[in-house]
Design a protein around this nucleic acid. Sequence first.
DNA 1: CTGAAAGCGCTTACAG
DNA 2: CTGAAAGCGCTTACAG
Lengths: 334, 334
Amino acid sequence: MAVTMHDVARAAGVSLKTVSNVLNDYEFIRDSTRAKVQKAIEELGYEANLTARSLRSGKTRMLGLVLSDLSVPYYAELASRLMTVASEAGYRVLVEQSNAGAANELAALHGPFRQLTDGLLFTPLALDADTIDARRGSKPLVMLGEHILDPRFDLVTMKNKEAAQAITAHLLAGGRRRIAVLGADAVDDADSPGLRLVGYRAALESAGVAFDPALVVPCEWRRDGGAAAVAALHSREVEFDAVFGLNDAVALGAMHELLVRGVKVPEDVAVAGFDDIDEASYSSPSLTTVSPGMDEIAKRSLQLLLDRINGKEAAPDGVHIESDFTLKIRSSAP
Amino acid sequence: MAVTMHDVARAAGVSLKTVSNVLNDYEFIRDSTRAKVQKAIEELGYEANLTARSLRSGKTRMLGLVLSDLSVPYYAELASRLMTVASEAGYRVLVEQSNAGAANELAALHGPFRQLTDGLLFTPLALDADTIDARRGSKPLVMLGEHILDPRFDLVTMKNKEAAQAITAHLLAGGRRRIAVLGADAVDDADSPGLRLVGYRAALESAGVAFDPALVVPCEWRRDGGAAAVAALHSREVEFDAVFGLNDAVALGAMHELLVRGVKVPEDVAVAGFDDIDEASYSSPSLTTVSPGMDEIAKRSLQLLLDRINGKEAAPDGVHIESDFTLKIRSSAP
DNA sequence: CTGAAAGCGCTTACAG
DNA sequence: CTGAAAGCGCTTACAG
């Protein structure tokens, strides 16, 4: 049996409430009383029972993080940073992997997972805004990423269009004219791929280069997706002098496939990505990409969520935070 | 206010205990009673309060996972698999990052983190066996990795020595004679680096190749560590025709640095790693490495922990599980 | 500034 | 097979 507040109260010769007051930093306690209680806590090695505290207070001091798959480097790096920031604020992060499945996303939105957390950082990939709004529950919910862009929600996003436009402009400035885009459907939508494609087209237009739908190849946002997309371009005999992978994994997979096929990077084909995961600095050649400001995203999304939890942010509509980006020019597209 | 068991009991016209029996799949309930209760649960949308259940039962159905840094690909991939396996067993995984610091490891071993979990998967890097044993607490604890090899603990390890020996033998069979080892001190100890170094030396000996301490370069097990180690070898003008990075990150960082310096891989220098992270298949050239059986490690370590929690594994001494390895021969060292 | 009491929502002996 | 009661260890009004 663990030591309880009762034991501490008895040892210190005070009531339960007084122990509670000391534990919760209540202001008006006589110094002598506080000292007695703290001495008893030390001597008995008392540790507050978090479960009991949660049951009574209704707060768990855990935050939920829903993402598709923790083994995806971008998510792993984001989760790691979020945990660090959360821990400084006295919170833990409980991760739930959705595998981008609607059923899993729905399950994370209420049910046990939600119950265990005081607020949710949610990267939706399958559900739409109305579905989420209908089941959002009463606890704070902050959306990460671009799948949902709806003023009803708190959103933390990156400047997808502007960043994609900037990196495409960089490729164009390097003399590239046939820039393949890997990871988007030719259909424009408001999702991350769609927004990045819009940026790509805007850059082409500014440079007076015609858009060729044959250069747009849909694929999974993974290394093998990028590799398969390059293979598809080759088998269709589409010519290109640059590749813009809509995330780093796609770009790195594409680069691998190009090099395997004897294509020189960047001499024959320049390669650019998006995310600036750690690996991008250490690939060979190192990968030109966009840094979407992951530190800023981690810090500000967590702060927003905590402000909602503590009632410090009271805007009735959603707050929209957009992180800044920077171009990382490396060897794959100098 | 959420719906409680009281509400369900009232709606179904039964007692609290009966509702509890239905929820906990107690055998001897009349079908008609069970049906009544289930109907009430459905209609009211009742969900059990996990915090209350935990307080009463002393079980949280959460498992702790302590590792140095979730943004390290090997740990991210392991955590992802563990979460998937745990979730199938009805458990969640709470991750704690230690940054390989003794204070953090100690804090994870008891205190709030331990309280929140029914058992711990622990990757110690800083603490020694005696310190851990003194504070291990009463809840199940399974050690991952080789830092602690002590029969007092349940251990899940990989065949470090044998695997390192096998991959070194592969490099030797390819005609390499000056194989640099990155990521070990020249001192043999029983830790992962030490064991892998022992395997390396055993392979040299079998092949009748003399061991040269100048080829052993200590470094952090990260991409930048591998890169720095290659730079150090070059500045010391040590000649070598192969690199064995003691994990994939080191090998990939080393390969990057070699290519940047105009060294051809594998023509001039062959490169091999250890771990078989996803990235190893997609680097350029793709990385020859050892797959330590991460799926097996995830499954068996979790099973062992659950068996301890449920009292199914009662061996008084620690159980030692060793996963099998396979060589992955790729382009960096064919 | 401190105390006595109630109650968060469950599970678990104990009866019957 | 089911019920009434106690209690897990806290926090929170309510008094004083």
